[in-house]
Design a protein around this nucleic acid. Structure first.
Lengths: 234, 234
DNA sequence: GTCTATAGCTGGATAGAC
DNA sequence: GTCTATCCAGCTATAGAC
C-alpha cells in the first residue's frame, strides 16, 4: 500500500540497493558498531534520515545485508548436488566457492566478522539452516566412504577445510596480496588457486583431480544452458 | 625515571596486563572502533582515565595488544626450523598452529579482524616481516621440491592453506561449535583436528603423515628439555 | 517520500583535586 | 600514580517542514 501511483517502487528499489551497497563497504571497513549511519548515507548519497525511513534502524539494515549475502550464496551453491561422482562434485564446489570469494569478497568478509564476533545476528541461522546443510552433506560424503569411492576422512572437517581454504582468499585478501606483492587478483590467479586447492584436497580424499579443463567445460555448458532459458533482465 | 622508590613497577605491570586482557575481550566482541574505553575500563576494574594515563590513547592500546600477539606467535613458532625432514616439519607446524588457535583464540580473532578490515595498523608488518618470513619458507619448500622430497605444489599457496585451515578453528570457533553442536573444544578435538589436517595436507604433498604419536613424543621431549633448563618463574 | 534541524546520549580525551 | 568531574565531538534516532 504505497502512496504513489506506480513505478515509484523502482526509485525505492534503486535507493535500497545504493544504501545496501554503501553499507557493505562501511561495515567491512569499520565493523557493525564502528560504522556510522552518517558514513553510509554519505557514501550512498542520501540524507541520513532516509536510511532510517527505509530500514528503521541500524540493526535492520545490517540484518537486510546479511540476508542478501546468504541468499546470494544459496542461489549459487544450490546448483551443486546430485552428481554421484565425488571428484566432480568436490571440484565444482571448491572452484565455485573460490569464484564467489573473488566476485563477492565483501560479502565473505562481513560474514566472517559476524562469526568472529560471536555471531550475534546469525546464531539462529548457524544452529538451524547451516547445521542442517552440513548434516546433509556429511551424510552424502559418508555414503561415498561406505561405498569405497573416497578415502575415510572426517566429512565435517573436510567441509570446514574447503570453507576455510577457499574463503581465505576473500577474507585475508589484504594479507595475500601484500605477501605476494600483487595489486589485485586476476582471472589467472583464481584459476591457479582452484588448481592448487582441488589438487590438494582431492588427493587427500584419495581422488584424481579432474583439473581445470574439466571445470571450464562444465561452466561453459551451464552458461550455454542458462542463456537458452531466455533470461532477459537488463 | 619513575617517582616511587621501587617495587611499584609491579603494580603498573599488573594493571597493564589487566587492561590488555580486558581490551582483548572487548576488541574481539566489538571491533576496534566499536569498543569503548569505558567498557575496557569497567572490565579491567580501573577508572577510564587510568587507561589513558597508561596508554595515552585508544590506538596505542590497540597497537600494544597487536604487538603482544605477534610476539607470542613468534616465540612459539620460531622453534620450528632446521629439521630437514619435510614430513616432520610440516606436521609440527600444522599441529603447533592448531594448538595456538586453541590456547589463544582471541589473539587469532583480533588479528583476523585487523586483516579483514584492510590491516590499517599492520600493513607495514605484513609487507615487511611477514612477507620476508613467507619468502624464506617458500625457498625451503622449493628446495624440497627440487630435491624430490615432496610433490611439486605451489609453496606460497601451501603456506596459505596451512594458515587458513588451522586458524579457522579459532576464528570461526562459534560456527564450528554451533554446527557440531558442542559447547567448547576439548583436548581430544584438538588432536583429532591435527590428525585430519596433517593427513590431508601431507598426503597432498605426497608425504606419509607421521601421525599423532610422533607429534606427542616430540612435544614431550621438548617439555622435558625445557624443564631441565631450570625455568623457575612462579 | 524527502530532507533539515535537533533531541538525547555516549564517545575519547583531559584538567585538576587528592 | 589515582580518580572524579567535565568538555565537546560524534553517535542514533526522530520531529516536523516541505
Amino acid at each position: 500500500m504505497s502512496t504513489q501511483k506506480y513505478k515509484t517502487g523502482a526509485i525505492r528499489e534503486r535507493n535500497n540497493e545504493n544504501i545496501l551497497a554503501a553499507a557493505e563497504q562501511e561495515f567491512v571497513l569499520h565493523g557493525f558498531k564502528g560504522t556510522s549511519m552518517q558514513a553510509i548515507a554519505d557514501r550512498a548519497g542520501v540524507p541520513k534520515a532516509n536510511i532510517h525511513y527505509y530500514f528503521k534502524n541500524k540493526g535492520n539494515l545490517y540484518r537486510a545485508l546479511l540476508e542478501n549475502i546468504l541468499t546470494t550464496w544459496n542461489e549459487v551453491l544450490s546448483d551443486i548436488n546430485s552428481d554421484s561422482d565425488p571428484a566432480r562434485i568436490l571440484s565444482l564446489f571448491i572452484r565455485t566457492k573460490i569464484r564467489l570469494s573473488y566476485t563477492h569478497p565483501n560479502a565473505s568478509k562481513i560474514f566472517a566478522m559476524e562469526i568472529i564476533q560471536g555471531a550475534p545476528y546469525l546464531k539462529d541461522y548457524i544452529s538451524g539452516a547451516m547445521r542442517q546443510w552440513v548434516r546433509e552433506k556429511t551424510l552424502v560424503i559418508q555414503s561415498w566412504i561406505d561405498a569405497g569411492k573416497i578415502r575415510a576422512v572426517d566429512p565435517t572437517h573436510l567441509i570446514f577445510m574447503i570453507w576455510s581454504s577457499t574463503q581465505h582468499y576473500a577474507d585475508f585478501e589484504t594479507q595475500v596480496l601484500e605477501v605476494t606483492n600483487k595489486r589485485q587478483y586476476e582471472e589467472d590467479d583464481i584459476l591457479r588457486i582452484g588448481d592448487f586447492l582441488e589438487d590438494m584436497i582431492l588427493r587427500g580424499c584419495g581422488l584424481t583431480p579432474p583439473g581445470r579443463a574439466a571445470y571450464l567445460a562444465l561452466v561453459d555448458d551451464q552458461a550455454a544452458t542458462t542463456d537458452s532459458t531466455g533470461i532477459t533482465e537488463a
